[in-house]
């Protein structure tokens, strides 16, 4: 069973990793941020799989921290906003 769960974690890594293409393509910061969100959820999934498969319950705390802070990158996005219009005129 552990073998299967580790393999599943590897597959989640590959699948969420493919989402990084969105980080490269964009076109907007919102799209790029989605790659980070995807990796947050995927990272949580990988952590729970590894924790149970490897019988390392401490790893669950990584998933817990990732889940707790899942929305923070999206929240932080609003911080950079006052300049977003100026930014557009610049290039």
């Amino acid at each position: 069973m552990a073998e299967f769960l580790f393999a599943a974690a590897a597959i989640v890594l590959v699948l969420t990793g493919l989402g990084l293409a969105r980080m490269l393509w964009g076109p907007s910061p919102a799209d790029r941020m989605m790659a980070a969100q995807l990796l947050g959820t995927g990272g949580g999934a990988i952590a729970v799989l590894v924790a149970i498969a490897g019988d390392m319950t401490a790893v669950l705390d990584i998933a817990l921290t990732l889940a707790l802070l899942a929305a923070f990158a999206a929240v932080a996005l609003t911080l950079g906003e006052p300049g977003s219009k100026r930014r557009g005129g610049e290039e």
Binding site: P27, S28, P29, A30, D31, M33, M34, Q37, A71, A74, V75, L77, T78, E81, S84, K85, R87, G88, E91
Partner: peptide, 14 residues
Amino acid sequence: QLIAEFARRGGGER
């Protein structure tokens, strides 16, 4: 929702 609001306000476009 935060990303959607951000994108709709034009923060999404460049």
